[in-house]
Design a protein around this nucleic acid. Structure first.
Lengths: 349, 349
DNA sequence: CTATAACGCGCAATCGATTGCATATTATAT
DNA sequence: ATATAATATGCAATCGATTGCGCGTTATAG
């Protein structure tokens, strides 16, 4: 029947009032009589009226869409963040538009462009590893649109961000290995020296020195930290005169590669080599032995990022004096070490 | 500088022409002189003009946004589909809006509502397992918006869909187990009898009977097919007087549960019990032993679904005679059996 | 040299919801 | 009874891009 578009004008006509009144009635405006409101509601449902958000968006200059950009949506880490964002955003009537860059800087730029043209009300983004130029992010800020970075941040950018304490996570992981009696602990780090990997390396290093072990460069292997990289890195370590007795990887897939290689070589885990990874991807608990790792509480990251976004929109809404300077929020969450079989040499006491 | 909005009117003013001309120039309209076009382009870039898609969307009645609804975006199966959709859609200038329902029918309904209000140009959806009422999908069709179902479909709905041949996948998996010498093959199926699981069950059954084995109901276990369910189902099978010598699960997590339980009981895989799952989630190749499974070529599913959407929009665009009846496209892709260690009892000959 | 075509661009309406201001009606105060 | 306030609604512009129709100018045809 009502095949196509029912507008507020149609409702208005039916009731011999104007669209203005209908609009106000639907938004529960105080200056509209209850009588009219009820009548409007009734006709609206009868006609199966669906508000056209696009028209409202044009008029209001806001779309009620929140854009979120991640390198991959199928990494448990990111999908949990997305879920965390949705939890908060949906409650405040925002729809979330998820975009993936596949770690491609070009795609990242075009995605930002697309979201801007879609007139999103905010952008939450975890920059790709290969992103060196941040102009596209500046453009978001220039447009006065709230921008929140998460996971991977950049200190020179004057924007809010939510990160975890990578240093602490790495420190605890390394310290745990030391407590298990490991003396030669290797580390897989990323070639790209973005902050998260720098911090993890720093945590690793500081844990060593604070515990009387010295930092040995030959035990630090750089790669892209994917599965294949982890395998290669482990193979490289096996060639050393003196084998390491533990590996702490800055990624989950990296440590998986190590696990595979060690098993293929008949090396006992954790007795001969103990392993700890980073990021609690589901598979880490399915391996044999299960992998110890640093849980990042990604859902909370998403919650926090969305909350900052909400704060910033409401902030800029009430900002009458334009002088009030924007102060970026910087939230640092605490990661948690999950100890599984791959690093448990001693019985828990 | 150009802090806020630059519109075509601003460009027009600079050049002493009208917005109409600017609009046409930007869209490369044939009736505009090359001279003007170049001038417009130049000013547009100088002013850093960004088209307001919302305004265009309102006028054109189309948003150039394609909505996609999945139960989970972090299942490799679905995320690959999404990627497949993006590949095609982006090339045709569509943005993809990803929505997750978490298998919650209520969220599915509200998501459809949200996409409709966002005036998406099409909706691709994999209905949740618990979705029994399809009214919200009908609403999409009634609005004349292309709707494509994938993976999970429903025959009574007069809509296009892309599915894989679940029957064939299951048939081949079961037959493979038979060829490996298995005689008592169990099957994990879903309690919800949606078509994909019915088909897999049918494939399993037919492979048995076609190969002279009889269908034994006590070997078919119903559950929700998650990890914990797989564990319970396997435990249940272990209690049988006569143990099965193989399990074919209609899900990936289900077979993982079986694997865990078998290992915990010291039962050899595949010698004593061979295993085959469904869906090529990454972890299936990381387990010990690695899990044989049915690859669904999810990226192709996404490609096909997006292509159908594109076909349908262009179709409805040129449809001058409204009489031409809509004929839903039904695409069935062929799955592929990936044989790994968990089912390889004989050497490959 | 006039008639017609081709070309280049402007006018104004449109998409649907929103909102400041004006207006009409009724209620309250003095 | 008149002034004032409170209440309920209408008017018309606005958000920015798009497009059918029309008009003036130049080019081609006969």
């Amino acid at each position: 029947m009502n095949k196509e578009k029912v507008t507020i004008h149609d409702i208005a006509k039916k009731l011999n009032i104007t669209a203005s009144t209908v609009s106000r009635a639907l938004k529960n405006h105080p200056r509209i009589s209850d009588e009219t409101k009820k009548a409007v509601q009734k006709v609206a449902t009868k006609l199966n009226y669906q508000p056209n958000h696009i028209a409202a968006a044009l008029r209001n200059g806001k779309s009620n869409i929140l854009g979120i950009i991640v390198p991959w949506a199928d990494r448990s880490f990111f999908s949990s963040i997305i879920r965390g964002v949705e939890e908060i955003a949906n409650d405040s009537n925002y729809n979330v538009m998820i975009c993936q860059t596949y770690e491609d800087p070009k795609k990242e730029v075009s995605t930002v462009e697309a979201l801007l043209n879609a007139r999103v009300d905010g952008v939450l983004v975890s920059p790709g590893k290969n992103t060196l130029n941040f102009d596209h992010f500046h453009k978001i800020k220039e447009r006065g649109i709230p921008l929140v970075l998460f996971d991977r941040s950049n200190d020179e950018l004057e924007v809010s961000h939510v990160v975890i304490d990578d240093f602490l996570g790495a420190y605890r992981a390394t310290e745990h290995l030391i407590q298990q009696g490991c003396k030669r602990i290797a580390h897989f780090t990323n070639t790209r020296k973005i902050s998260i990997y720098k911090e993890r390396l720093r945590g690793y290093r500081e844990a060593l020195t604070n515990n009387g072990l010295n930092y040995d460069e030959s035990l630090v292997v750089e790669s892209d930290l994917q599965l294949e990289d982890g395998r290669n890195s482990m193979l490289q370590l096996l060639k050393l005169k003196e084998m390491p007795d533990a590996v702490f990887s800055a990624s989950a897939y990296g440590i998986l590669g190590a696990l595979q290689v060690l098993k293929e070589h008949g090396i006992k885990i954790p007795e001969e080599v103990a392993l700890v990874g980073f990021a609690n991807e589901p598979f880490t608990s399915f391996t044999e032995p299960s992998l110890s790792t640093v849980e990042q509480h990604s859902m909370r990251i998403g919650n926090a990022a969305a909350q900052i976004f909400l704060d910033e929109v409401s902030e800029s809404a009430k900002k009458s004096d334009t002088t009030k300077k924007f102060i970026p929020q910087k939230i640092v969450l605490t990661p948690e070490l999950i100890i599984r079989q791959s690093s448990l040499k001693k019985k828990i006491n």
